[in-house]
């Protein structure tokens, strides 16, 4: 059974048809890279998976269960699906440590000292040591994004969603974030990554999905995707970003 099954997903913003029937399966441990031109609906798509966006038709199943099932609690669902944003969105009024421990304490009811222990372990894993008591503004962009990854991991999600996690970063900080993501992929995390980092896609993804105009135009394992793109739109897109 696939971990995430998306079937005929459609969404409109008023008159505007953003997602025109997306069907996609992601198995446990798989890493999916989603790319495509701006406005193609990539963010909207992955944000539907943790119900940050509502959709009008189609179904999304997580662990075999429709995410809109009556007995699905939206907050517990989201605790199983971590999300990392382009703009980091760290809580500026809380220290790095408290950014990471907030959800485990409030959502999972974890005791504070246990949550802090977990958080410090995660911060070490993403390479943020000795900064736990600083505030987000005191960190560089790359460090902030790594804290955001640790924060998302703190509730022990089964899936991680990444929405262009490196697009807001200065070039010299992109790799430190990608390396954390690669480690995560190698450790077997199920991941859906909206990114235009093709090196990352080549190295760790199982499949690359190309979206345009609210549709999946093409998808293939990375080797094939980059060597033999079949659609004209994919070719044009690849030419532009490579």
């Amino acid at each position: 059974m696939a971990m995430i099954e998306v079937n005929g997903l459609q969404k409109w913003y008023g008159e505007f048809h953003v997602l025109k029937g997306i069907t996609e399966e992601v198995n446990k441990g798989e890493v999916l890279v989603i790319c495509g031109p701006s406005g193609s609906g990539k963010s909207t798509f992955i944000r539907c998976i943790n119900r940050l966006e509502e959709y009008q038709s189609g179904t999304i199943r997580f662990d075999g269960k429709d995410i809109h099932d009556r007995d699905v609690n939206v907050n517990s669902l989201r605790a199983e699906i971590g999300i990392v944003f382009q703009q980091f969105n760290l809580y500026p009024h809380l220290t790095v440590l408290k950014n990471v421990t907030l959800a485990p304490i409030k959502v999972k009811g974890m005791p504070k000292n246990e949550a802090e222990e977990v958080a410090l372990g995660l911060l070490e894993r993403v390479g943020i040591t000795d900064q736990a008591h600083k505030y987000p503004v005191e960190l560089s962009g790359g460090q902030q994004q790594r804290v955001a990854i640790a924060r998302a991991l703190a509730v022990r999600p089964k899936v991680m969603l990444f929405d262009e996690p490196t697009s807001a970063l200065d070039p010299e900080m992109i790799n430190e974030v990608l390396n954390v993501m690669k480690d995560l992929a190698r450790e077997g995390m199920t991941m859906l990554c909206v990114t235009h980092e093709m090196g990352f896609a080549r190295e760790v993804s199982d499949r690359v999905v190309f979206m345009d105009g609210g549709e999946v135009v093409e998808e293939a394992p990375p080797d094939e995707f980059f060597k033999n793109p079949r659609h004209e739109r994919t070719k044009a897109f690849l030419k532009e970003i490579l």
Partner: peptide
């Protein structure tokens, strides 16, 4: 801010 908070399950 709200999205990050809700997205983490709060």
């Amino acid at each position: 801010q709200m999205e990050a908070a809700r997205g983490s399950g709060l």
